[in-house]
Design a binder for these strands. Sequence first.
DNA 1: CGAAACTTTGATGGTCTTCAATTCCGGTGG
DNA 2: CCACCGGAATTGAAGACCATCAAAGTTTCG
Lengths: 230, 230
Amino acid sequence: MYFSPANQTALKAEPVSMPMSSLVECNTHDQALCTHEELFCEGDKVEFFYEVVDGVLCNYRMLLDGRRQIISFAHPGDLIGLGQDGAYRYSCEAVCRSKVRSISSCAVMRDARKHAGLGHRLLLSASAELARMQEHQLLLGRKTAIEKLASFLMMLAGRYSRDGTQQTYFDLCMTRTDIADYLGLTIETVSRNMTKLKHSGIIELPEATIVHVRDMNKLAELASGDEGLS
Amino acid sequence: MYFSPANQTALKAEPVSMPMSSLVECNTHDQALCTHEELFCEGDKVEFFYEVVDGVLCNYRMLLDGRRQIISFAHPGDLIGLGQDGAYRYSCEAVCRSKVRSISSCAVMRDARKHAGLGHRLLLSASAELARMQEHQLLLGRKTAIEKLASFLMMLAGRYSRDGTQQTYFDLCMTRTDIADYLGLTIETVSRNMTKLKHSGIIELPEATIVHVRDMNKLAELASGDEGLS
DNA sequence: CGAAACTTTGATGGTCTTCAATTCCGGTGG
DNA sequence: CCACCGGAATTGAAGACCATCAAAGTTTCG
């Protein structure tokens, strides 16, 4: 059986060749959101797609009793709202001050029929999304708390990468609650394991939401799940 | 906040209007697989897409130490292998005797550029897949063992539905190991909770892999997570 | 029939959750 | 400037749920 050398690769941001908005012939509208502001809600009618310009948003689903699962985070360049027909199947809110560009979903679907390029771009976006979700499912179903956290930090390091190299110093831009709801854990477990990573020298935490990765290899090992914390 | 009346709807098989194979101008090839036979492996070069003709297959990812997470099951009419570029990002094997129709992936991508219909069909397939995966993530991250199992049975009841109504009597077509690896549990936990469902009168188990749902409403309540087992 | 694979059931233990209290941090107003 | 406040994070103690280990029962199939 063959395993890709680095399971994390699928999590890296796929470089977006061109802003979506420039491929569609219609007006776009920029919108600023403050922390925890809702972009749309599960069940809302789909009228727009959104391209993240700045900040971070999260797509999430909830159970009736309030349990929440964050499906994915959307970073600058990411598209939000693809693959919906009719009504959104999840909610979306900003996890920090953010900016999005809204694009008429009708216009996109109309143009997708005419221009093969746009259709292809949509399919690529959907593919990237699928890959990230598969990685996330493996994490949710089979990784331990510390492996989940390590994987999460690796993902962010990849997402915030500049010219292909992972970032070792970045702002999480979110609370422990957001992290917990993404990893299927509680805030206490996230906090405890963050402390473990700190005490083992793998990361530093200048502030609660600012991470400095000191040992990316060890972090990657932990994330891949084939090694525990010594 | 709005919640769709039944969270399970997204899990129902989206009726496939037309077999994929009839939309592509190329030779197709039917292939029979026996239980646990591999269709392809993570890392393999993508040369074909597959349309399930009969049986059930599973897409899965593994960690180095053998932990396995089943990403999705593929039932008749489902497509396998979409959204890959270059190499498969997961492995695929038959969970029971199955038949698949292989279609050249090059031919599909070529035709997708020419025929808007095919491109649209692919996008729809990808959308349906995304919806199912979101549901699955909520399950993996936030549901209890019994809720997971109830959700799983609801999904199968929807997938095996005839003319829109859920099936109350069906064959799981898979072992406890497969179920456990799909739900992020162990076989023992699956077995214990299957017994709980049986003892509470919600289901009957004529055989280990054959389920007869006696109380679909109660099962749905359990699956939605807003009610425990009395 | 007999062996192997699968399932069920029991006993025990570990990981993560829950509940609770304290600390930390940013912002506000005295 | 500092006390005060509220939200977030951390830390501790106890408990629940699920995993692990082990053994017996069941089914399948040569």
